[in-house]
Design a protein around this nucleic acid. Sequence first.
DNA 1: AATTTCGTCAACCGCTCTCCA
DNA 2: TTGGAGAGCGGTTGACGAAAT
Length: 289
Amino acid sequence: MDVKARSSSGPNMVSTEEEDLKRGPWTIEEDFKLFNYISIHGKGRWNSVAHSAGLKRSGKSCRLRWLNYLRPDVRRGNITLEEQLLILQLHSRWGNRWSKIAQYLPGRTDNEIKNYWRTRVQKHAKQLKCDVSSKEFKDTMRYLWMPRLVERIQAATTTTNTASASAATTSNASIEQMLLPNLSYYTPDNASTVASSDSIETQVSPISDSTDYYNGVSTNYNPNQDYLQANHESLISPIGSYCNNGDGMDFGLMELNHHWVRDGDGDGLHNLLNAEDFFFLQHQFNFNM
DNA sequence: AATTTCGTCAACCGCTCTCCA
DNA sequence: TTGGAGAGCGGTTGACGAAAT
């Protein structure tokens, strides 16, 4: 938050002609008010939502809080390998179009993806002593990093196969559909074709037109539900109240989220690059310089 | 054990876009 | 056609916990 910009009217408050607007971290009570208001009335105009919900917040602030934290379909937790790969692919295509990239990662927010890129990817670019926008770094991502991620995803999938054949059938289908075309996509042999093509758009599908893509995962995970219910016993259940108010309460999206494997793979063990990967990449990168 | 540095993430700002009267 | 209001987007910042010294 921008402390410098805060008014002298009090902590976390900013003066306006109409009222003092609160800023800074949201309290549980504020979350509760906003969540319950939208559960009952839907979203509407954010300024009126803020006012009607009894929040001394700007509409902008309410919108952001809803989108990044409170909405039922938001996913929290570590970025999975599949998501990492997708982010790299989509960023190579669109650059810093975070909201566009986020459309392809159900439940992830543009803010989260942006943070991920800045903290993880840019960090590794720095470690490799190159600019994240340089050709060298992009080539490293394309020809080394992404195939490496695919290998690890496939390895993880193989492990899953051993553990559970039926679950792996679904998982394999999803991963292969998403990733295997990209394995051939990111090869030096077809680099010139790839660099100028629109092929990514044909390989990954946005939420709106790819229902097949998300089939078959049974996990029902709603962290916000956990959070809010843990803190507010009287809170209206998202499940119970969202289905019929018709203004953006999209439980279809919650179903779509289930596509992503939630097995804890996004933890330290599977961060963007583990030590082995990093040495591998560093060696390759220096070799290519 | 205390201090410093680093990494992550929530939330803000300012700008642009879109819609509507 | 135009101007205002609201929404959305990308960049940036500060708080805070974890890791390192």
